[in-house]
């Protein structure tokens, strides 16, 4: 059994087998995994906001989908991942509260998912699996040995994507 590497909000890290990498209680944030299945190298970032260029306070690059995914890419490549092998799995972006208004501030989950997908497309990294949107929180665990992303929600049976 390997260790479970934990990342918090606006953090990123990389991971090799037999370890696994997790982030707990994703709400409107998005967990992005980049994975090279041949080298079994992976990394995860927990992004909170879609776009670093819209925010003045943007020193923490892992906080944003655009800069966070870029940095994560550099980290997995530095560890020996092969660029063309890379695939992504994403989860999160829930709308935690059932707002009736369409206030933009409150749709941040959707916007995080959109920005994540746009960034991955720009980098030509295919999304292999996703569990996004809806209205419940998720804990996710990624196992680079198998390439499986385990998603756990309250009151639901954990499942793999």
């Amino acid at each position: 059994m390997g260790n479970m590497i934990k990342i918090g909000m606006a953090e990123l890290n990389v991971c090799l087998p037999p370890d696994a990498i997790t982030t707990l209680g994703l709400g409107s944030c998005v967990g992005v995994v980049l994975y090279d299945p041949t080298q079994k190298i992976c990394g995860m970032v927990h992004v909170m906001l879609p776009d670093s260029t819209k925010i003045k306070n943007n020193e923490n690059r892992a906080k944003f989908a655009d800069t966070g995914i870029e940095d994560l890419l550099q980290r997995v490549l530095a560890l020996g991942a092969v660029r063309r092998n890379l695939v992504a799995k994403i989860a999160g972006g829930a709308q935690m509260f059932a707002f009736k208004s369409d206030n933009d501030m409150l749709r941040v989950g959707d916007r995080n998912v959109e920005a994540t997908k746009a960034k991955l497309q720009e980098l030509h990294i295919p999304i292999l699996a996703e569990d996004t949107g809806k209205n419940s929180g998720r804990t996710i665990e990624f196992y680079p040995e198998t390439g499986e992303l385990l998603v756990k929600s309250v009151g639901k049976t954990p499942y793999k994507i």
Partner: peptide
């Protein structure tokens, strides 16, 4: 909403 603290708090944290 009733859920994991991390998920609930992500809304104000964001």
């Amino acid at each position: 909403a009733m859920d994991m603290a991390g998920a609930i708090l992500s809304v104000p944290a964001i």
